[in-house]
Amino acid sequence: MEQIASAGGSASPPTAVTPDPSFLRQVEKAGGATISPCFQCVKCSSGCPLTFVMDLLPNQVIRCVQVGLKEEVLRSDTIWLCASCETCTTRCPNGVDIAHLMDTLRQIALRENVTPSQPGIVATHAAFLAEIRARGRVHEMFLVARHKLRTRNWTRDVALGWEMFRRGKLKLLPKGVKGRKWLKERVPRVN
């Protein structure tokens, strides 16, 4: 069973590092947000609803990228536990799009085959994109089935699934999009 950490920021980055700008350049080139204006006011982390379960706080992620702590960032729970709620991006006084930065970091982590710290969440993305590849639309029961095949967690939510089925919330047959040929070529598989 996964445990919830009692407080955010428990896995603090090292206190002394030799700065290496190559990771920052890689992030910026990959379309990541411009993060240089960050002056560590911590407003992002103060308003983040997920800090209670993060190992690096959002402002620490930014600092780590700036000084080149690539491994620490790409292996962190934080990049996957960010719920993309956009509170940080909305409130940042320096216009840093932190939610977009998190997306870019996830994309780099997947591209470089970094073992994800949150396999259950990556499995959701994999299952979701597999649904889009297959039909152009997501069928929720198929989505859950794909997620279970990846995580091998067969028992979770079975009772809930039955309750939803009983109330007619689950659609049985999937419907595909006619214009979906391009999706087979364009939608990536997530390992």
């Binding site: 379309g31 993309s84 997306d103 870019t104 996830r106 994309q107 997947l110 959701t124 993305h125 979701f128 994109l129 649904e131 889009i132 152009g136 639309r137 997501v138 999009v177 006619k178 214009g179 979906r180 999706l183 364009r186 939608v187 990536p188 997530v190």
Partner: peptide, 25 residues
């Protein structure tokens, strides 16, 4: 007619360009 999935909470985490192309269609 023939709308497709917008990519929702997953496409943008995996592939920025795809997360734009899906709703753009």
């Amino acid at each position: 007619e023939d709308w497709n999935c917008c990519g929702a909470s997953s496409a943008h985490a995996v592939d920025h360009e795809l997360s734009v192309l899906l709703p753009a269609r």
